Lab assay of single mutants.
Amino acid sequence: DTFTFTLDGIEVRLHGASEELIKTIEELLKRDIRWEELEKWIREWEK
């Protein structure tokens, strides 16, 4: 599955994202998160 969203005018596609990761990103997007914050968060998630 591919999860697609737009952040700061950039279309982002995550391939093979888990349901948990998708739900977490959706929550972060509701908080009007900035790209830099999401990028940092995703790097931490990957560890």
Rank of each mutant, 00 (worst) to 15 (best):
residue 1 D to T: 07
residue 1 D to V: 09
residue 2 T to H: 09
residue 2 T to P: 12
residue 2 T to A: 06
residue 3 F to R: 00
residue 3 F to C: 03
residue 3 F to D: 01
residue 3 F to K: 01
residue 4 T to L: 07
residue 4 T to A: 07
residue 4 T to R: 04
residue 4 T to D: 14
residue 4 T to W: 13
residue 4 T to H: 12
residue 5 F to K: 03
residue 5 F to T: 05
residue 5 F to Q: 02
residue 6 T to F: 15
residue 6 T to W: 15
residue 6 T to K: 02
residue 6 T to A: 05
residue 7 L to E: 02
residue 7 L to Q: 02
residue 7 L to H: 08
residue 7 L to T: 04
residue 8 D to P: 01
residue 8 D to Q: 03
residue 8 D to Y: 04
residue 9 G to N: 03
residue 9 G to T: 02
residue 9 G to Q: 04
residue 9 G to D: 07
residue 9 G to R: 00
residue 9 G to L: 05
residue 9 G to V: 04
residue 10 I to F: 09
residue 10 I to V: 14
residue 10 I to M: 09
residue 10 I to N: 06
residue 10 I to R: 05
residue 10 I to G: 01
residue 10 I to E: 06
residue 11 E to L: 05
residue 11 E to H: 04
residue 11 E to V: 10
residue 11 E to I: 09
residue 11 E to K: 03
residue 12 V to E: 01
residue 12 V to I: 13
residue 12 V to D: 00
residue 13 R to M: 14
residue 13 R to V: 15
residue 13 R to A: 14
residue 14 L to C: 04
residue 14 L to Y: 02
residue 14 L to H: 00
residue 14 L to W: 04
residue 16 G to A: 08
residue 17 A to F: 08
residue 17 A to L: 08
residue 17 A to S: 03
residue 17 A to I: 11
residue 17 A to K: 04
residue 18 S to Y: 03
residue 18 S to H: 05
residue 18 S to P: 08
residue 18 S to W: 03
residue 19 E to Y: 10
residue 19 E to W: 08
residue 19 E to G: 10
residue 20 E to A: 12
residue 20 E to V: 11
residue 20 E to H: 10
residue 21 L to S: 05
residue 22 I to A: 03
residue 22 I to H: 02
residue 22 I to R: 07
residue 22 I to E: 02
residue 22 I to Q: 06
residue 22 I to P: 00
residue 22 I to N: 01
residue 23 K to A: 13
residue 23 K to L: 11
residue 23 K to F: 10
residue 23 K to D: 06
residue 23 K to C: 04
residue 24 T to K: 15
residue 24 T to G: 15
residue 24 T to F: 14
residue 24 T to I: 13
residue 25 I to R: 00
residue 25 I to E: 00
residue 25 I to M: 03
residue 25 I to T: 01
residue 25 I to S: 00
residue 25 I to P: 00
residue 26 E to M: 14
residue 26 E to P: 01
residue 26 E to T: 13
residue 27 E to V: 11
residue 27 E to N: 11
residue 27 E to T: 12
residue 27 E to M: 11
residue 27 E to K: 11
residue 27 E to Q: 10
residue 29 L to A: 02
residue 29 L to K: 02
residue 29 L to Q: 02
residue 29 L to R: 02
residue 30 K to G: 05
residue 30 K to L: 10
residue 30 K to Q: 10
residue 30 K to D: 08
residue 30 K to V: 12
residue 30 K to Y: 04
residue 31 R to T: 15
residue 31 R to V: 09
residue 31 R to Y: 08
residue 31 R to M: 11
residue 31 R to A: 13
residue 32 D to V: 06
residue 32 D to H: 09
residue 32 D to Y: 06
residue 33 I to Y: 04
residue 33 I to L: 07
residue 33 I to V: 10
residue 33 I to G: 04
residue 34 R to C: 04
residue 34 R to F: 07
residue 34 R to P: 05
residue 34 R to T: 14
residue 35 W to T: 02
residue 35 W to E: 01
residue 35 W to C: 04
residue 35 W to V: 05
residue 35 W to M: 08
residue 36 E to P: 14
residue 37 E to W: 08
residue 37 E to C: 04
residue 38 L to Y: 10
residue 38 L to N: 00
residue 38 L to C: 03
residue 38 L to A: 02
residue 38 L to V: 05
residue 39 E to S: 10
residue 39 E to H: 15
residue 39 E to N: 09
residue 40 K to W: 09
residue 40 K to P: 11
residue 40 K to E: 11
residue 40 K to T: 11
residue 41 W to E: 07
residue 41 W to Y: 15
residue 41 W to H: 15
residue 42 I to E: 01
residue 42 I to F: 08
residue 42 I to L: 15
residue 43 R to P: 06
residue 43 R to A: 09
residue 43 R to T: 13
residue 43 R to E: 10
residue 43 R to V: 13
residue 43 R to Q: 14
residue 43 R to I: 14
residue 44 E to W: 08
residue 44 E to G: 08
residue 44 E to K: 05
residue 45 W to Q: 11
residue 45 W to M: 07
residue 45 W to N: 06
residue 46 E to K: 06
residue 47 K to C: 12
residue 47 K to H: 14
residue 47 K to F: 09
residue 47 K to Y: 11
residue 47 K to I: 12
residue 47 K to M: 12
